[in-house]
């Protein structure tokens, strides 16, 4: 599903002393099946943007179009939009509420008005997709481990079969293994199902290893948009916004400054390793 975000503004509490411009003239276009990282300092407007993407917030001006249709237009079915654009909030495990994991995952598809059979089918597939074993289906969601809870909550959104999935800080608070599990789920959703995945994160190292395109927000504006590799070339600009570049790329660009003939447009650990070995004439 193609997304067009066209010059949107969002102003909180307009006309009062608390007035605050959260989004300012944000414009971008995402084609089917893209893998995008959305970054920005706290308060840069990235979470507000996420809420706009599935119609939970409406822009003060400008428009959002899915497959060419304005979601603010008369009679647009916002509920079916929420099925198409899945939004996984920060700490999504805090929204679990049913008696068992399986019933909780059924909540989303049930709200879409699907038949019980279809609902259960989807719940089963989603739980499998996030790697929850059958013997955990009927335990209380509150008895799962931290990482399992997070994955079950993501399954709750996946069960709506979204074409676009937005994950807000999906790894927050997890240990390294838990982080890796979540990110590999995102990878497989993108690769196997062709879903457009948008990850909001503070970890440039994680993003560098996974996403293809980067959007950078700063003070409500979309200030950079492009392939991850190109965006991370702007190290000084990113650092002035309180952001960082992936550590692997920082190593390369430091080496370049020290006079080594290395390329500094590489961002993953593996790329950095190959590049350094290449310069030193060793086979990787």
């Amino acid at each position: 599903m193609q997304i067009i975000v066209n010059h949107i503004d969002h102003i909180y509490n307009p006309g009062t002393v608390f007035e605050k411009k959260a989004l300012s003239d944000v414009t971008f276009k995402a084609e089917d099946g893209e893998y995008i990282g959305l970054v920005g300092h706290t308060g840069s407007g990235k979470s507000t943007l996420a809420l706009h993407l599935n119609g939970l917030m409406k822009p003060t001006s400008g428009g959002i179009y899915y497959d060419g249709v304005d979601i603010a237009s008369e009679g647009y079915d916002l509920r079916s939009l929420r099925g198409k654009v899945g939004l996984v909030f920060q700490y999504p495990e805090h929204q679990l509420f049913e008696e068992d994991v399986f019933t909780d995952v059924c909540f989303g598809p049930k709200n879409l008005g699907l038949e019980p059979e279809e609902t259960e089918q989807r719940a089963y597939e989603s739980l499998k997709a996030v790697g929850i074993d059958d013997d955990r289906f009927y335990v209380s969601p509150f008895d799962l481990s931290g990482g399992e809870k997070r994955r079950a909550a993501i399954a709750g959104v996946l069960a709506m079969k979204p074409e676009v999935l937005v994950l807000d800080e999906p790894c927050a608070g997890l240990d390294p293994q838990g982080r890796e599990e979540i990110l590999s789920i995102a990878d497989s959703l993108h690769e196997m199902l062709g879903i457009t995945v948008i990850i909001i994160s503070h970890s440039m190292d994680d993003l560098a290893e996974h996403v293809e395109r980067m959007l950078v927000m700063h003070e409500g504006k979309l200030v950079m948009d492009g392939p991850a590799r190109e965006v991370f070339m702007h190290r000084e600009e990113l650092e002035s916004m309180g952001l960082a570049v992936p550590e692997a790329q920082a190593v390369l660009s430091d080496l370049k400054k020290m006079g080594l003939p290395v390329r500094d447009d590489l961002i993953t650990i593996d790329e950095a390793r190959r590049e350094i070995l290449r310069v030193f004439g060793r086979q990787a």
Partner: peptide, 27 residues
């Protein structure tokens, strides 16, 4: 658990035969 990115990169370069000491911590 995982080691910091810099330590991991150093470790892999060392494994590939470069002369880099163990347990590097900073960039």
């Amino acid at each position: 658990l995982a080691v910091p990115v810099v330590t991991r990169l150093a470790h892999e370069l060392r494994k590939a035969g470069m002369n880099i000491p163990e347990g590097i911590l900073t960039r």
